[in-house]
Write a protein that binds this DNA or RNA. Structure first.
Lengths: 146, 146
DNA sequence: TATTGTTATACTCTATAACTATA
DNA sequence: TATAGTTATAGAGTATAACAATA
């Protein structure tokens, strides 16, 4: 833990985590009153990819507490972007599913963030884009670590 | 914007941004009552790297509003981790600098997050670590885009 | 007993708006 | 006028604690 190589690994980790934090602040800042919030986009994207899920499963998948995910889902439900269905066999559980409006909203009301990222990525050369795409998969594994 | 290649770029971008968000949530979750918050770590790291800075410069560097950075610095000052110095020529500006306690705190009170990241990185092979380190520099450029 | 979800409450982070002091 | 910083207020995101319903 005190060898030169782990020290440089630690420096690199600091740089990586600072950079990650900053990109997320930039993404959050790309917004207008109609735009979905980041946590809403994340929840909708997860439901679209994985199909109907319970609050607890969504919370586990996104590394937040069930109460926090519950608040996000309550707001999405209020806007008609998700709807709840009873679980077929377990009366405690509630399955949340995207509505047609939810699919539409995810495409349209996250546009500014997507456009900012696309424009920023366009400034990289193909090799650099490839590195970022490879890194995306690794960062995903990183977030699932432990 | 509708060609196959930009579509796959867009998919990759979505994956990248979701992964980035999730890593940051994991990092935030690695905490105990003594641990510094993420925004405190970021501000201390910036001051340590770049030397004394004004609120406005720090805010620009981290893509937040001066008022937001002011709140972070006020808390750090209350804990004795930074101190303010008058600007030599401009009476409006205030230069914030790390104290000895600030240097110490950055090393010790962000330990859980650093340990989690180190442990997670240890699970990658050398090629993958190299990809992540290259990506760190690119992600930094991404955050500075525009 | 353990799990799912809800309600209540609080803290962090960030924003906007209005203000003061200095340039 | 323009800029640096402060104060006041609000909203998003998340957490913990206490509870009810179901398994």
């Amino acid at each position: 833990m005190t060898t030169p190589s782990s020290t440089s690994l630690e420096t690199a980790i600091t740089e990586l985590s600072l950079a990650i934090g900053q990109v997320l602040r930039r993404l959050r800042a790309e917004s207008n009153p109609d735009e979905l919030t980041w946590s809403q986009i994340v929840a909708l994207a997860r439901l679209e990819k994985a199909g109907p899920m319970t609050t607890a499963d969504l919370a586990r998948a996104e590394s937040v507490k069930p109460q926090s995910m519950g608040a996000t889902l309550a707001e999405l439900e209020r806007e008609g972007l998700v709807e709840r269905h009873p679980h077929p066999t377990d009366g405690r559980q509630v399955l949340f599913a995207l509505t047609a409006e939810g699919v539409e909203a995810r495409r349209k009301r996250g546009a500014l963030k997507r456009e900012w990222l696309l424009a920023a990525m366009a400034k990289f050369d193909p090799d650099e884009r490839q590195t970022l795409m490879s890194a995306a998969a690794l960062i995903k594994r990183l977030s699932e670590s432990e």
